[in-house]
Each structure stands twice: as C-alpha cells, then as structure tokens.
Design a protein around this nucleic acid. Structure first.
Lengths: 103, 103
DNA sequence: CGTGTAAGGAATTCTGACACG
DNA sequence: CGTGTAAGGAATTCTGACACG
C-alpha cells in the first residue's frame, strides 16, 4: 500500500493539516464520511487520503451541502467509477476475443 | 512537499512501522541520525522518510555498525550525491555553451 | 443539523536517571 | 555504546452530554 493510504496520522495533526476542529473531524467520522483506523488504545489513525477527503468535505460543507448529501454523492461517484472500470474491462475482453473487429 | 517528507507520525506508530522500540528511536535522534519535528507540546513528529531511514539504520546496526559510523557514512553519501549533481550541472552548462562539442 | 465546550478518564509521549555491559 | 525500565509529569485523545439553533 502507498504512503498516501497508510493510516498513521493522529487527529491533532489532521486538525492542523485541514484547518478543521477535532470535533468536526470526529463528527464526519460519525456520519461515515471518513473511516479512520484505531490503535489498540482507541486512538484514531488517519491517512493522507483521509486528509484530502476532509478538505473536500470542508469545501462541500461550505457550499451548504449536508453530510448525508456528501455521503450519497461520494457513493454515486464510486459506483460511476466502478461502472467505467467494468466497461473498460469488458471492452478489453472483447478486443482480445475479436481482434479483427475495428478499433 | 510530498507526503513522504511531511512530519506527521508519532513515535508509537513509527515504532510499529519499524519494529524498533521507542527507546531506540529516541536514541537515534539523540545521536543525530534522524531529525523529527515537534508539536507545540513537544511530541515528536516523523515522516515516512524518517521511517525508511530508521529501517536502514536498523540494518546497519545489525551489521555491527556504530551510530557514529552510520552518521559519517550518511554524510559521505550526501556529499557524493552533491558532487554528482554539481558535475552534471557543470556538464550541462558546458554543453549549452559549446553545442558543437561532440556528445 | 453541525459544532463548541466543560468533564473525567485513559492512552500516549516526554525527560532524566539508573542499570547492565 | 546501545537499550531496557520504573518514575513522575505533561500533552494528547476519547466518549457522552449539554447547549445553541
């Protein structure tokens, strides 16, 4: 796994990096917008990906979006990506199976 | 600055990532092999680069090297790199100044 | 709904020192 | 020299709750 996805940053640092309060960060986790891991003792651990996502969330909140909307939009984006990946894979399979077909 | 160099990891996580004890990590800082930053409160903050360097240090310690030797070797490596960079830059300047010269 | 805050406790980290070798 | 450990304190984080709106 790349450094970007490794969960190693505590909430205080994340707060500094994002400009969000710890309260906000915990709340966004409660609303299932981010998914930090935990140490054995229960301390949250975030990745740089989480930090980026939090900045994005902050922007969407500023635009008046609610956490529920942000979550839904995120889901939609992911399923769209999934569909695109599937399409490309199928297309690849077809191209391999029928090499004579144009393009 | 890239994620790799950003100082955001606390010593407990670094200990887990490297397999080194916190005592060892603090000692290597005392011997100036690594240079973590600090929070306002005084808590150490490490980067993924530091983590990599610590793994390298651990290997060198296993090979029987002393911290003073490791530090010297590190310095040597850096000055060698510097020299190489300078050489390349000078060569580049020369190539630009005398484009007719072969190569 | 989203966020601030005070409260109490627990986990984490810090330093300086002693020990062993 | 390099590392473990107990000690005491300070910084950090955690949860559940109340408040405001």
């Amino acid at each position: 796994m790349s450094y970007k996805e490794k969960k190693v940053i505590t909430i205080g640092i994340v707060s500094e990096l994002t400009g969000l309060s710890e309260r906000q960060i915990r709340y966004y986790e409660e609303r299932r917008l981010i998914f930090p891991e935990r140490t054995n003792g229960g301390t949250r651990k975030f990745s740089f990906m989480d930090v980026e996502k939090l900045v994005s969330i902050a922007n969407q909140m500023e635009d008046g979006m609610q956490t529920s909307e942000i979550r839904k939009l995120e889901k939609k984006k992911l399923s769209t990506q999934d569909a695109e990946v599937r399409n490309r894979m199928i297309q690849g399979q077809l191209n391999a199976a029928f090499p004579t077909k144009k393009r």
